[in-house]
Amino acid sequence: MQDELRDYLIKDEPYYRPVADEIELYEAAYSVRMPMMLKGPTGCGKTRFVEYMAWKLNKPLITVACNEDMTASDLVGRFLLDANGTRWQDGPLAMAARHGAICYLDEVVEARQDTTVVIHPLTDNRRVLPLERKGELIQAHPDFQVVISYNPGYQSLMKDLKQSTKQRFGALDFNYPAHDLESEIVAHETGVSLDVASKLVSVAERARNLKGHGLDEGISTRMLVYAGSLIHKGVAPLAACRMALVRPITDDPDMRDALDAAVTTFF
């Protein structure tokens, strides 16, 4: 293990409940270093899954939260000035490729397409990363893998991956777990009873049915964990749900009233 990557090792097992055969499929993909794409709505467990797999495989995980201002240099690296002049600083992608980590590009479609193309030579049989400014060609470490995630619900002509990018990856679909499993997850993560967790999931399912009918996105498992954590700390369920579930996802008064009514139904 390179010293540079010790801080990126996940030491404690992340809590993750498999929904299908995603763990076995990912392990098979990693064994041949297939780049992987995780597709699913926000807050459904994609990042937790990557963390769990990095822990299970005992590989360092370098995570990059992609955004529209991110440049190729932010991923690859740049020259920096210090007291001794200029020195090269590897970006997260270069560090992962050089030393052998899993590089996770979260919500990759938020980055500009001219930025994401820098991963292309790392995601085919070449497995190289050209550092043009430095005049170096990094041969990817045998342990290196690229993983990307995105939410297909936000696809548009302006914000989607090129086919030339998509076809370099294997893909796993993620969605919100079945009611009983999601209730178990919420109860475990928050400390509330299974009954309270089940009611929270029921509220979320009502909201998810409204996606595309007044809501851009439904209530995520992550939001349910927030609400459950508040309830566990003594906040009244109605207030916790309004603050953690309803208010963040809509400003429309009628939609808020409809969701508040759903909360009242269960609590």
Rank of each mutant, 00 (worst) to 15 (best):
V76H: 02
E205C: 00
F169M: 04
A140Q: 03
H120F: 10
H141G: 11
G45F: 07
K233T: 10
R33N: 13
K233G: 06
L157A: 14
A207K: 04
L105T: 05
M53P: 05
F174Y: 12
G218P: 10
T190Y: 03
C103I: 03
H99Q: 02
W88D: 00
A94Y: 05
F144S: 03
L131H: 06
R48D: 12
R17P: 06
Y15M: 13
D260T: 09
A187E: 05
E136V: 14
L61A: 10
C103E: 03
F174S: 11
A187G: 03
V128L: 08
D124N: 15
P130C: 09
I219T: 03
R222N: 10
L105K: 03
P41Y: 06
L57M: 14
R256W: 00
V118I: 14
P130Y: 08
K39L: 15
G153N: 13
A178Q: 14
K166L: 14
F169A: 08
L215V: 08
R33C: 10
A187S: 15
K159R: 15
P142F: 10
E107S: 07
G100C: 07
V203G: 02
N151M: 07
Q155C: 00
Y30Q: 14
S198V: 00
M223A: 15
F174V: 11
V235N: 05
Q89K: 11
V203S: 01
E24H: 12
M158P: 00
L131E: 08
M255A: 03
Q145E: 10
P248Q: 06
K46E: 12
A140F: 04
A96I: 01
A96D: 02
M255W: 00
H120W: 11
D180P: 01
L238A: 12
T190S: 13
V108P: 02
F144T: 03
A54V: 11
A187P: 01
P121F: 09
T190C: 09
G100M: 09
Y16F: 15
E51M: 13
V109P: 06
D90S: 00
Y176F: 15
A197L: 06
I62G: 01
R208K: 08
V146T: 14
D180N: 13
R126K: 14
P41K: 07
T115F: 05
S156V: 10
H141V: 05
S229C: 05
Q113R: 15
P14C: 10
M223G: 03
D143Q: 10
P142Y: 07
Y176I: 09
T250E: 00
V117A: 12
Y154M: 09
I231R: 04
K46Q: 11
D216R: 13
D216F: 07
L9P: 02
V146H: 02
V76W: 02
L5F: 09
H232Q: 15
A96T: 01
L200C: 04
